[in-house]
């Protein structure tokens, strides 16, 4: 029978190995989450636990709340031609993962995976800082990645809030409406 003392030694040994490997994963794995990055700026509670304060906006269940201007499907249709311009100042950003982007994205949209921004920002930041309008989307529905990306661009990279728009319908609405899709890595 194991003594209580050796039991706690086992607990400690297992925790130490797991913690060391977790730290190694954090620092050495390029797809791991960066420890110091707040991926949920402006979020103080889980989406399902968010409550509206008195006098605050009325919360719609399943629909994330945010402070940005909203682009609807008609706006997206109207701006689509501008997204494709290589040096244009109206940009569309896809905040989803590269895998989802490759499977299908809004034509002309640029990949900026919110959880691995550091891979894309060095190239994109000069264009973002000079943009007149940046429309960001993610999966749609209750997906909040577009909102977190917009906040991160605003707080960390000093992009003007007035140029940041959220396409709330996201890919869910875009595909449901039978809109054109682009596949692969190119916008």
């Amino acid at each position: 029978m194991t003594s209580p003392r050796s039991f706690w030694k086992e607990v400690l040994a297992f925790c130490a190995v797991a913690l060391l490997l977790a730290l190694a994963n954090s620092f050495l794995n390029p797809s791991a989450m960066a420890l110091g990055t707040n991926y949920f700026p402006g979020s103080t509670a889980a989406p399902s636990q968010a409550k509206s304060g008195e006098g605050g906006p009325e919360l719609v269940p399943g629909k994330p709340q945010h402070e940005f201007q909203v682009a609807d499907l008609e706006e997206m249709k109207a701006d689509m031609a501008f997204f494709r311009e290589p040096e244009g100042d109206i940009l569309c950003l896809d905040a989803r993962s590269p895998e989802l982007y490759r499977k299908g994205h809004i034509p002309g949209s640029l990949l900026l995976d919110h959880y691995h921004k550091e891979k894309y920002l060095p190239e994109l930041l000069p264009r973002l800082q000079n943009a007149a309008m940046i429309i960001i989307y993610c999966a749609g529905g209750d997906c909040e990645d577009s909102i977190f990306l917009a906040r991160s661009l605003m707080y960390e990279h000093e992009i003007d809030k007035e140029v940041l728009w959220i396409y709330e319908g996201g890919m869910l609405e875009w595909e449901a409406e039978g809109m054109e899709l682009a596949e692969g890595n190119t916008p």
């Binding site: 797991a18 913690l19 977790a22 730290l23 994963n25 954090s26 794995n29 797809s31 791991a32 989450m33 960066a34 420890l35 110091g36 990055t37 707040n38 991926y39 949920f40 979020s43 103080t44 509670a45 889980a46 989406p47 399902s48 636990q49 993962s97 995976d113 919110h114 959880y115 691995h116 990645d145």
Partner: peptide, 29 residues
């Protein structure tokens, strides 16, 4: 899919979002 897992544990609202390393270490660990 560590980022998907991070989103899932964030949605529980059990761990605080600040300081961010708590949530991120949980997702990595």
């Amino acid at each position: 899919g560590l980022s998907d897992f991070l989103k899932s544990i964030h949605s529980y609202g059990v761990l605080p979002t600040t300081p961010p390393w708590i949530l991120n270490l949980a997702a990595n660990g």
